[in-house]
C-alpha cells in the first residue's frame, strides 16, 4: 500500500496531506466568521431584518456613485442595499425573475418593454449624463472635433477602423445600436469587436487595441487615468448632439407579478433617490473635480411620460386599466 500512497502523493503534486484534521480546524474558524458576517448582512442595523436588492448597471457602480447614494439611503432608512451591477439587459432579466426589488438602468426602450410586460411599475426619471465617442489620439477615422455622432460612426465604418462594442445588450450597447441605425450602417466585419463585457473592461480593451468605442462619460472619467484613449465627440453635456444623451430611470418590480419582492422598501428607495436629499447626493458627487450625473427628478412642471412607456397614450389600446375600458 506504500505504493498507493505514493501515487496519491504524486496526484497532489508532491504534497503530503492529512487534510481532514487541518480543514476541520480551519472550518470552525471560518464558520464563526461566516456567522458574524451573515448577521451583519441580514439583521445588523436594518429595519426588521429587511433587505433591499438593487439590480443596476455597471456604470453607476464603476463610477462610485452607487456607494455614495446607497450609504446615504442606509443612513436614512437603516437598511443596507445589496447592489448587483450588470448590464441593463441583464439587470432587467434579473428583475424579470423577481430576483431583485428595484432596478436602476439606462435604456428607455428596454425599460418600456419591461413595463409593458407588467414586470415594472412606478418608473421615475432619475438623472442623466451623456455618452461620448472615445478613441485613440491619432484618430485614424478623423472624427475628432466634430459635433456629429452619426457622421463619426459612418466615418469609422467607412475607414474600417477598430471599434469595440459592448455587445452585451446593456444600455450603452442599446444606445450604440441606435446610432448605427441612424448612420445606416450594419456594423460587422473584422474591425467590429464585441467585448461582451462591462464598460470598464471595454474601455481597457479599446485602449490596448487602439479602438474607438462609445462610453458613458462617467465611466470614462473614472478610468481616464488608466487608459490611453480620449474623447473625440462630445455628448450633450458639453454641447454635443442629443443622440448621445444618456438618461437613467429607476423603477420598482411589480409586486402583483412577483409576490416575493419587497415593494415597500423599493418605493422607499425610489422615494429617497428622487427626493431633494437624494438628488443632492447625485448632484454633489464628483470625481476628479467633475460632476458625473445630473439629477433630473425634481421639477415643478408635471412630466407624466416618465411613469409610462414613452409615447404611451390612454387611447392606444394598451392601457388595460384606463378609465375608458375596453
Amino acid at each position: 500500500m506504500t505504493i498507493q500512497r505514493r501515487d496519491f502523493l504524486a496526484l497532489a503534486g508532491g504534497t503530503a496531506t492529512a487534510g481532514l484534521a487541518g480543514c476541520t480546524g480551519m472550518f470552525s474558524g471560518g464558520e464563526e466568521e461566516s456567522g458574524g458576517n451573515n448577521e451583519s448582512g441580514s439583521d445588523g442595523g436594518s429595519i426588521a431584518g429587511q433587505e433591499l436588492v438593487l439590480a443596476t448597471t455597471t456604470s453607476t457602480y464603476d463610477t462610485g456613485l452607487l456607494d455614495e447614494v446607497n450609504a446615504a439611503f442606509e443612513e436614512n432608512f437603516g437598511t443596507p442595499v445589496q447592489a448587483i451591477s450588470q448590464g441593463t439587459g441583464a439587470a432587467l432579466e434579473t428583475a424579470r425573475n423577481g430576483d431583485c426589488d428595484v432596478v436602476m438602468v439606462h435604456a428607455r426602450s428596454q425599460e418600456d418593454e419591461f413595463m409593458r410586460n407588467g414586470h415594472g411599475i412606478n418608473r421615475r426619471n432619475l438623472m442623466f449624463n451623456d455618452f461620448v465617442i472615445v478613441g485613440p489620439a491619432d484618430d485614424p477615422a478623423g472624427i475628432g472635433g466634430g459635433g456629429d455622432a452619426v457622421g463619426a460612426f459612418q466615418a469609422i465604418a467607412e475607414s474600417e477602423s477598430l471599434f469595440a462594442s459592448r455587445g452585451d445588450n446593456s444600455g450603452t450597447h442599446t444606445a450604440e445600436r441606435r446610432i448605427w441605425e441612424a448612420a445606416g450602417v450594419e456594423p460587422g466585419g473584422e474591425w467590429y469587436l464585441e467585448t461582451g463585457q462591462g464598460m470598464g473592461d471595454t474601455l481597457n480593451q479599446a485602449s490596448q487595441q487602439g479602438a474607438y468605442t462609445l462610453s458613458d462619460r462617467g465611466t470614462f472619467i473614472s478610468q481616464q487615468d488608466e487608459i490611453e484613449i480620449e474623447i473625440l465627440v462630445q455628448g450633450p453635456v458639453e454641447g454635443g448632439p442629443e443622440i448621445l444623451a444618456n438618461p437613467y430611470g429607476v423603477l420598482a418590480i411589480n409586486p402583483a407579478v412577483h409576490g416575493d419582492v419587497n415593494y415597500q422598501l423599493a418605493m422607499s428607495y425610489i422615494g429617497f433617490l428622487t427626493s431633494p436629499e437624494g438628488q443632492q447626493v447625485i448632484e454633489e458627487y464628483e470625481l476628479d473635480g467633475q460632476q458625473l450625473f445630473f439629477p433630473q427628478a425634481l421639477s415643478e412642471d408635471p412630466n407624466f411620460q416618465q411613469y409610462v412607456p414613452e409615447g404611451w397614450q390612454p387611447d392606444d389600446g394598451e392601457g388595460g386599466g384606463n378609465a375608458t375600458g375596453e
Partner: peptide
C-alpha cells in the same frame, strides 16, 4: 492520504472558481 488529497483538491476547486459564484452570488458588497 488519498482522502486528504481529495479534500484538498475539492477546496482548491471551490475557492479558485469564479464562474458560478459570480452568477449566483451577484458579487455584492455594501
Amino acid at each position: 492520504f488519498g482522502i486528504a488529497t481529495a479534500v484538498l483538491a475539492g477546496f482548491g476547486r471551490a475557492i479558485s472558481e469564479v464562474g458560478s459564484v459570480l452568477i449566483v452570488g451577484g458579487n455584492i458588497a455594501y
